[in-house]
Amino acid sequence: MPEKSISRFTRIPTALDDLVLIERRRLGDERGFFSRFFCTEELPDFGIGRIAQINHTMTQAKGAIRGMHFQKPPHDEAKFVSCLVGAVFDVAVDLRPQSPTYLRWHGEILSAENARSMMIPQGFAHGFQTLTESCELIYLHDKPYAPGAEGGVNALDPKIAIAWPLPVAQMSERDRGFPML
């Protein structure tokens, strides 16, 4: 009997051009659940088909902010970001000068429970704030990290005015030192 093709992903558009929220379909029973995390055959039109690097991060403190990070061209990268433990307010800022959504931001709650991921295209800065203690995220990148191409914007920049849901509990000196626009 031929295998039936079932999409395991739901694409949810956002208000920012090319920024997409992905919801993974879970198949569950009394043991737990199964979900497909990524598939190049089902997700290439979402902006990432080749995975060049996978990163895993753990942030202990609730209210901590990491970001807003990006890679400069020609090393600009697309990221597929998911929360595996806890919950975060995940944010992307459109830094593409030609875009109609230039300098606008969009945030979504990603959590272990809601099985959502953010597909962040090239030309966006990315960061998050932890909503619980001990949050773990996994990032799938379409290009490897290039130290000389690293960039960032200040997550507290009033020109962007990200509405972080919690008071800022922690930020690295590096992230606090990113320039304001």
Rank of each mutant, 00 (worst) to 15 (best):
R8K: 10
F9C: 12
T10F: 00
R11L: 14
P13F: 12
T14L: 10
T14P: 10
L16P: 02
L16Q: 02
D17Q: 13
D18W: 04
V20D: 06
L21W: 00
L21P: 02
I22T: 07
E23D: 06
R24C: 11
R26Y: 03
R26S: 08
G28D: 05
G28K: 06
D29E: 07
E30G: 01
E30C: 02
F33P: 00
F34C: 07
F34R: 05
S35K: 10
S35G: 00
R36G: 13
C39N: 06
T40P: 03
E41N: 11
E41I: 01
E42M: 02
E42D: 13
D45N: 08
F46K: 00
G47R: 09
G47Q: 06
I48Y: 01
G49L: 04
G49P: 03
I51H: 00
I51F: 00
A52R: 03
H56P: 03
T57V: 03
A61S: 10
K62I: 12
K62M: 13
G63N: 14
R66W: 13
R66T: 09
G67F: 02
H69W: 05
F70Q: 07
F70D: 10
F70S: 10
Q71H: 05
K72N: 14
P74R: 07
H75M: 09
H75Q: 12
H75W: 09
D76R: 02
D76F: 02
D76L: 01
A78P: 02
K79S: 11
K79Q: 11
K79P: 11
V81C: 14
V81H: 12
S82N: 12
L84M: 15
V85Q: 15
A87Q: 08
V88E: 12
V91I: 08
V93G: 11
D94T: 08
R96T: 01
R96S: 05
R96L: 08
Q98N: 13
Q98M: 09
Q98H: 14
S99R: 13
P100W: 13
T101A: 05
T101W: 06
Y102L: 06
R104C: 06
W105I: 04
H106R: 05
G107W: 09
E108Q: 15
E108F: 14
L110A: 09
L110Y: 14
L110M: 11
N114H: 15
